[in-house]
Amino acid sequence: MFGCLSFLLIALSLSAATPAVADEEKTLRALEQKLCEAFRSSNAEVIGQIEDDNYTLTSSTAKVTGRADDLAEAKNNEPHYDVFSNHDVKLRFYGDTAILNGITSVKGTSAGKPFAADFQYTDTWIKRDGQWKLVASHATKIVQ
Rank of each mutant, 00 (worst) to 15 (best):
R67E: 05
T18N: 14
P19K: 11
V143Y: 10
L28D: 13
I99Y: 12
R67M: 04
Y81S: 04
V89L: 01
C4I: 14
F119A: 05
L12Y: 13
L71A: 01
K107C: 00
T97A: 13
V143S: 14
S137M: 11
D52W: 04
A111R: 09
S137W: 07
L14A: 07
A139M: 11
A72E: 04
G130L: 06
R92W: 00
Q120G: 10
K90H: 06
E37I: 13
T97C: 08
G130W: 05
P114M: 05
A62D: 08
V46E: 07
Y81R: 04
T122I: 11
C4A: 15
K90E: 15
T140A: 13
F7K: 15
A22W: 06
E73S: 07
D129Q: 10
A117N: 14
A44L: 02
I47Q: 01
N43R: 03
I47H: 03
A74K: 04
T56Q: 05
V21K: 15
I103M: 00
V89W: 02
E25R: 15
T97H: 08
T140H: 10
W125P: 05
F93D: 09
S42R: 00
L35D: 08
N101P: 00
C36M: 14
L134N: 12
E73K: 10
K26R: 15
D123E: 15
D69Y: 01
D53Q: 07
C36T: 14
L71Y: 08
A111Y: 01
P19G: 11
V83R: 12
S6A: 14
E32M: 10
I47V: 12
L91Y: 00
F2E: 15
S60R: 03
E78R: 04
A17N: 10
S85E: 09
A11T: 11
H80L: 11
D69G: 01
K141W: 03
K107V: 01
T140G: 09
I103N: 07
D96Q: 12
A116R: 13
C36L: 09
V83N: 04
D70T: 00
E78N: 12
L5S: 11
I47K: 00
T27W: 09
E73L: 01
K107N: 03
N54R: 12
D82W: 01
A30S: 13
I126W: 05
S6I: 09
K63M: 04
S59W: 00
Y81T: 06
G3Q: 12
D82S: 08
I10Y: 05
F7L: 15
S59C: 00
K90I: 07
F39N: 12
S110Q: 06
I50R: 02
S137R: 11
D52A: 12
A68S: 12
H138M: 15
I99H: 03
